[in-house]
Design a protein around this nucleic acid. Structure first.
Lengths: 338, 338
DNA sequence: CCTTAGCACTCGGGGAAGTGGAGTGCTAAC
DNA sequence: GTTAGCACTCCACTTCCCCGAGTGCTAAGG
């Protein structure tokens, strides 16, 4: 692919991205190639079609980038976007209001990203890289019933009601809690389950080990949730005027699990990832692109954050802003969790 | 309004609700009034228009219910809907998977309700009717930093990192925690702030009162969040084919706060509420109806749950199913929180 | 060999015109 | 009060046509 072809491909992509109208040789010549005639450009265009980078909606129409065309654009032609420092500041500030709750931070991240990217933002819930017990507490609710609170690394809390002997009072419970802390602090769910039974222990206390492990395990896998925000941006995209098409995408977004599986599966890979059109495995998102990266808080907590939009999404700008939001999210979570 | 007019109004509402096409005198006579001629029905229809219950999109079109027409229908003509016992069982079962986490229960409720109502479901987060301190714990994280865990009535937990004197160790912290429990258990946020400073207290401990109150206050107002689900159902409604109209509604749903304010404001009123078209105060929802009620877990926790749809929503069926889901939600939360 | 002007051809979008039919209101008779 | 009959209205839909943007091809020029 020679340099002129690349220039032309880049011009087609950026023009189509703006106008959402197939771009013709005349428009191209007038706007980007004053030194070339439309005929020359026509020749180049037709070769780009032959090579699969562009397509023609119909015989006498202009050209539109194919998934392959976007792929080449993203891999080789993407201009380096710089984020306005003012925007950068604005993003940092946006997180300040929400710094008390992991989920609130993620909600803010999604809202911010959808606004900045002018598309749909998706964020997976936090997964704990390693979830270790930090503290257990037992509080008497009624006679016979207690509340077990577990705090894990990452400071996420899990609470659960448990049945106990009606004769056990808060004093005894506190003793139990001390024992549990002695036994389990610093362990993972698997390790908790591996701890052998202690002969002399109160039978009620003995039975708690399994509950503790279950809670820990649940804390580690809260990531099932997938927040999304910005559907309002989707409906004004011309490619989603057709309600059926829009519905298919919404179906996927609201199902959570479908998208969640893909995001979690891709998450381990470092850096920014771009999935264009058919490159993602979700049938309903064949006409969408995903721009993804991960957020990270220390070495404890991580998740995936990204943007879903039509394939003609502005990859450069979106990637830059996603980067910005993902870093700010990580920073906010780090501050939150210490 | 005589009985025949009521019958006709009911027929127009239910026919229009199904077909979304203005209903004419012929169709009415053929389908619902075999004993009357279309001319008679025409006379009645034109009186119903004069009274403001029906409207004509244009001079030679059939009739469409107005907001006032729906209002009359809802107030006086609503058939008593029974919910299929199988559906009832299905709803109960749907909650079983999610009984470990308040938010998860609410997510399930929203998903379920949107499916059953075939519209958008909205659920406000849980508010605690009275949030009183039940238990406080302090855990050393690093020297100089501790985790404060508060448990309030309703068993909601709040955690927060606080700065402390680096010389304070876990033993001393545990002593502090005992003091805090002695001082604050059973109090509300306001009362906590009203507790006078105690002269002999460690200065680090003294300062915690404000933090404790802040946590309590936050626990009581988590309701800010508004979950919604079922936007996919909205896009296939003919009244939202126009992207601009759809966008306006999405704007409101995704803003959370706008709808949240309305829901919280209406929440105290008991029973089921129906807001038809202009009756709600949100400009963008002028062409929507809200069917709302509240869920309740014991006397501790409550929130609003409801359905948003076009004004021609099936009020009877939606109300019955909303009732079902709201009860199941309350039951699930009650089991969860005891 | 690449570039360009010229030209005939294609095709979709959009406006104009026409038509069918559902629906109305009114009148007069029962 | 009800109904048949009738003239009238108006939208939705189809058809038709045409404009113009855009193409591919050819042949001439650098």
């Amino acid at each position: 692919m020679d340099q002129r072809k690349e220039r032309i491909l880049r011009a087609v992509v950026s023009d189509y991205t703006e106008t959402v109208v197939p771009v013709g040789s005349h428009a191209l010549a007038a706007r980007y190639f004053l030194e070339l005639s439309s005929a020359t450009i026509r020749n180049e265009l037709s070769e780009l079609v032959d090579d699969g980078f562009l397509a023609q909606p119909h015989a006498s129409a202009g050209r539109v980038p194919t998934d392959r065309g976007y792929r080449y654009f993203v891999d080789f032609l993407l201009p380096q976007e710089v984020v306005d420092p003012q925007l950068r500041r604005h993003v940092r500030q946006g997180f300040e209001a929400a710094e008390h709750d992991v989920e609130a931070v993620l909600e803010v991240a999604a809202a911010m990203l959808s606004r900045l990217s002018e598309n749909v933002a998706v964020v997976t819930g936090p997964a704990n890289a390693v979830s270790r017990m930090r503290h257990i507490d037992l509080v008497l609710v009624h006679p016979g019933q207690a509340l077990m609170v577990e705090i894990a690394t990452g400071n996420s809390a899990f609470q659960r009601l448990i049945e106990i002997d009606p004769l056990v009072d808060q004093e005894e419970l506190s003793g139990w809690a001390r024992r549990l802390n002695d036994m389990y602090v610093g362990l993972t769910a698997d390790e908790v389950e591996g701890v052998p039974l202690v002969p002399g222990l109160a039978p009620g206390l003995q039975a708690l080990g399994a509950d503790v492990a279950r809670g820990l395990r649940q804390l580690a896998t809260r990531s099932a949730l997938v927040i999304h925000n910005g559907v309002r941006n989707l409906v004004r995209q011309p490619e989603f005027e057709d309600p059926a098409r829009l519905r298919a995408v919404l179906e996927v977004l609201e199902a959570q699990r479908i998208l969640g599986d893909v995001l979690v599966q891709l998450a381990p890979q470092a850096g920014m990832q771009v999935l264009i059109g058919h490159e993602n495995s979700i049938e309903e998102l064949r006409e969408c692109s995903l721009v993804l990266t991960s957020y990270q808080a220390g070495d404890q907590l991580w998740g995936t954050i990204g943007v879903v939009g039509p394939t003609r999404i502005r990859y450069g700008q979106v990637a830059a802003r996603l980067q910005l939001v993902s870093q700010a999210t990580g920073a906010a979570l780090t501050r939150l969790l210490a």
